[in-house]
Amino acid sequence: MKGSMRVAILAMIIMALVMVHPVEGLNCVELAGMLSPCLDYLRSGGEPPEDCCSGVKKAQGAIQSQEDRRNACNCAKSAAGQMKVRADAASDLMAKCGVSTISIDPNVDCNT
């Protein structure tokens, strides 16, 4: 019985460690998935759809550190240049969705 109690306690400690272990930083594939509903808006302008703003807010929640923010910025900057997004739509997106975490501007300096 003492052995099974030790195993149970060890299992609980491991579960607690797994539950509080920080999530790895946001990567470009994940960010692209979150922001993909914004692509039409970023190319055409107008008003971003609700699922776009939901993705933007989800991306904001995934950014936990300055390094995450810088990585997300670099991913968004690269994608914006490749997908030829409108600069005005990109610069307005975060404000229209009520967040200020990342920029999707191909000219932004992600180190500041």
Rank of each mutant, 00 (worst) to 15 (best):
D88T: 10
E50Q: 14
A90L: 07
M94N: 12
P37Q: 13
M34K: 12
T112N: 14
G33N: 15
K84R: 13
V108I: 05
E24R: 12
M15E: 04
P49F: 06
G3K: 02
S54A: 14
A62V: 01
I102K: 01
M15Y: 05
A16Y: 06
V18Y: 03
A76Q: 01
Q60V: 09
I104Y: 01
S4E: 03
S78D: 09
Y41T: 09
C38V: 06
E30K: 09
C73S: 04
P106L: 06
L31G: 05
Q66K: 12
I14D: 08
G25C: 09
L26C: 10
P37D: 13
A62K: 15
V18H: 03
L17G: 15
M94P: 01
D68A: 04
L17N: 10
D68I: 01
A87F: 05
C38F: 03
S78Y: 06
H21T: 13
A89H: 01
C110A: 10
P37F: 11
V56E: 06
N71E: 13
C52Y: 06
S4P: 01
C97Y: 08
G98P: 08
D105W: 02
V23F: 04
I13F: 15
E30R: 09
A59W: 01
G33D: 12
M94T: 05
D68Q: 07
A95P: 00
K77T: 03
G25N: 07
P22S: 11
A62M: 14
P49M: 09
R69C: 03
G45H: 08
L93W: 04
T101Q: 11
G81T: 02
V108C: 02
N107T: 05
S44D: 11
K84G: 15
S103W: 00
L42G: 02
Q60P: 00
D40N: 13
V20F: 10
K77S: 02
G45M: 09
A16I: 11
L93C: 04
T101Y: 04
C110K: 08
I102V: 15
D92W: 03
V20S: 11
D40M: 11
G98A: 10
G81V: 01
K77R: 12
M19V: 12
A59N: 03
G3W: 01
V29P: 00
L31M: 13
I104C: 04
V99I: 05
V85H: 02
K96T: 03
M94I: 00
G46Q: 10
R6G: 04
N74A: 08
S78N: 10
V85K: 00
A80Y: 03
A80T: 00
S78T: 13
L10H: 09
D40S: 15
S78H: 05
M83P: 01
G98N: 09
Q66P: 00
M83H: 08
M94A: 15
D109C: 04
V7Q: 13
H21D: 02
K2V: 03
A8R: 05
L35G: 07
